[in-house]
Write a protein that binds this DNA or RNA. Structure first.
Lengths: 210, 210
DNA sequence: GAATAAACCGCATATTTATGTGATCTCATC
DNA sequence: GATGAGATCACATAAATATGCGGTTTATTC
């Protein structure tokens, strides 16, 4: 039996979902609050549900802040957002805060039910549009870098050595070349990157600017 | 009509999928190669398909590298991975490279078909398990740091100076303290972090390990 | 009120880094 | 076959870093 809790301030929607879910023979939905504060009050003296449906726009504390607190106190609760917001920022914040699913409010009741089942089985239910936005996050950083640094393969080797915290001597050993060669490469690297210390090279490299 | 291309080296699987998709009345699947290289060769003189199914383990170039090249040359192609790998690393790499969907090979043919339709409508088809892994990425950074480094505020100031590429002298100037004090702090920082060079401190810091 | 931690300062020195100048060899390009 | 870029090596030196030792002052804690 999956126990489901709801935090949603729209009474009509809340009652509708609660009744529908409670009617299912593999679910029970007795806990329905219209604010995070109330839910936290409830959880102080009761066992947490398995799954919690959470709105974002709520009286008092926002649902996103709510996720953080609830996940911290009761990490085993699976939280699914159920909201009208589909902007990347809210989606991202919700996931970072600890939500595992994200549905839009126009989702049909049977789909909500399925998503809850999916969630407890280790899935991460999202509408395809939401999934696409999540994925777009991975493609963002790309267009950022246009590094014309243009280091040679050998020079990149040396940079990697520096990033690994090696001294010139150890870099020389690693590549079986003389320390003066390492110096020569580093001189050229500095010229190309317009820097004049190891520190700057390491920082640039780890920031993805090379 | 959705035109679908396939890059998959297992002939049996490739033919099976190709025939099935080509049989659908809203799809056409004429382009099926067993390596990225062949696909690139083909694309030089033919119009790219709308959707491309891509394996990861391939003879020659890997599918992940393939995504990068194809997305760069033909950004409008929607790429969906179809692979046996379900480790976070491969999933992540694929998405960063530009894939928009990620299915496991045991997915049924009708589900593949649905996923393709979903993809062209702006969705991001993934199995629930994959979606969960993607989402876990957002929760990762949290438990990551358990750094008992425990630097004092002043020590953190100094570290920031190092990361900014400053010399001891410049750090001393920045905080209006003597260079010997900077040395003293750095000595303590090295002790706490178990390192013995600026380079390592900078690397640790930029990796979020402080 | 003793102990501890943090921030501050100084002196000394060995090691490492940054930078200059100059050279040889290979490979690709024109 | 000259030109140029890349990789290799050498010698030299000033500057910066790493590390040892020592110390004072000011909070906070027990």
């Amino acid at each position: 039996m999956i126990e489901v809790g709801i935090v949603e301030d729209n009474v009509k929607i809340r009652n509708l979902i609660q009744r529908y879910l409670d009617m299912q023979d593999n679910m029970s939905c007795k806990i329905a609050m219209d604010s995070v504060e109330e839910m936290l009050e409830y959880l102080k003296v009761h066992k947490p549900p398995n799954v919690m449906l959470m709105d974002i726009q709520l009286p008092g504390m926002s649902g996103i802040k709510g996720i953080e607190i609830i996940k911290k106190e009761y990490p085993s609760v699976e939280i699914m957002m159920l909201t009208i917001y589909h902007d990347s920022h809210k989606i991202f914040d919700s996931l970072v805060a600890g939500a595992s699913g994200y549905l839009l409010k126009h989702t049909s009741l049977p789909e909500i039910k399925e998503s809850i089942e999916n969630l407890v089985q280790g899935g991460a239910p999202m509408s395809p549009q939401i999934a696409r936005k999540v994925i777009q996050h991975f493609n963002q950083p790309k267009p950022e870098h246009k590094p014309e640094s243009d280091l040679t393969a050998r020079e990149q080797d040396i940079v990697n050595g520096l990033v690994d915290g090696l001294s010139y001597k150890l870099i020389a050993d690693r590549f079986d070349i003389s320390i003066d060669t390492v110096r020569a490469h580093i001189r050229n690297i500095y010229k190309k990157l317009h820097v004049n210390s190891k520190a700057e090279v390491i920082a640039k490299s780890l920031r993805g600017e090379i």
